[in-house]
Simulated assay, not measured.
Amino acid sequence: MNRRHLLTGALTLAAASMALGGCGSESERRTFSVEVTSTPITATNERGWTVTVDTAHLSVGPVRFFEGRALQARRFHWYTLIGGTAHAHPGHYSPGDALAELLSTHTVDLLTATTLGDANAVTGQYGSMELTLPAPTSATDAQGLLSGHGMRVRGTARNTGGDTVRFEAMASLSKPIEGVRFEKTLGTEPGRVRIAVNLATWLGRIDFATATDPDADGVYTFPADSQAQNALLRGVEDTTAYVVTWVEGAAQ
């Protein structure tokens, strides 16, 4: 069965359990809000560049939560940056049943906390999250902040040799990011899910010297076959770039 349809079954099962008045570890319907923010960059990246981010935008949704745990974070080797293949999830991640989902898509400013909306959910043992970063539409990105891409970051990178690169990094993903860790025994207590995007992981592998010549405004971009673009994609796809936590209490 397609796991994207499992949530309906889980909600139906939860409703049936409550209707029958059964005892034990039955599920209950609930909702919780989902917010997206980011973690600032505080150190130089792996290539010796200090990066300052001026703007960062992301297209997010749907977001789905599953019972299966992310057994091992996705790992990459240096040869992926020159065209090699990395093997993700050697622990054979299995998502299991869907427990919650938020189906809407939004363009968010990662430099501020943005609430996406409420996820329809059931109580239970959560283990992982699936995050979709789709190309935006005119409806989800009316201001054109993403220029048609799933993510867009603008900023400045400097190295110890005195080189300065004003850059614009953009990427789109063809499939959702699966197996993001989120381990929580969720009951009916008030709270919300916070997804923090680690910008240092997104930009951590990039050698900004491989960017193109600057445009008329002096901003560098990343050619499709460059080390910079390859490293950017690896960073955005890295499951450890997304730290998911449960924040107790009612929203302020």
Rank of each mutant, 00 (worst) to 15 (best):
R192H: 15
R75I: 04
G179E: 08
R3Y: 09
A250R: 03
G204N: 00
F208Y: 15
Q252L: 14
T132E: 14
T8K: 09
N120L: 14
N198W: 02
Q143I: 09
T140S: 15
E168Q: 14
G96W: 00
E183P: 00
Q252W: 14
F65L: 05
G218H: 06
G144F: 07
I177L: 15
I195F: 08
V153L: 15
A88E: 00
L133D: 02
A216R: 14
R205E: 11
G68S: 09
M151P: 06
G84L: 13
R181P: 01
A216S: 15
Q229G: 12
A119D: 12
L99Y: 01
V193M: 15
R158A: 15
V108P: 06
V34M: 10
L102I: 04
A10G: 14
S174A: 15
R152H: 07
A216L: 13
G191P: 04
G127H: 13
N198Q: 11
G117V: 07
Q72I: 10
A251W: 03
G84K: 10
S59M: 13
N45P: 05
T137S: 15
G150F: 02
L146F: 05
F167C: 14
T164D: 08
V197H: 03
R75D: 14
T112Q: 15
L186N: 11
G144S: 10
W246L: 10
S138I: 03
G179A: 12
L13N: 12
L199A: 06
A142N: 05
T221D: 07
K175A: 13
D217V: 02
T31L: 10
V36D: 01
E178T: 12
A121D: 01
F208T: 05
G144H: 08
L99Q: 05
T140F: 06
T185V: 04
W49V: 05
R234M: 13
F222W: 02
A169F: 08
H89L: 11
G22K: 02
Q125H: 00
D225L: 11
E67T: 07
T132W: 01
C23R: 02
E183T: 06
T201V: 12
L173R: 05
H106T: 04
R75F: 13
V51A: 09
V108D: 01
A14M: 06
W49N: 08
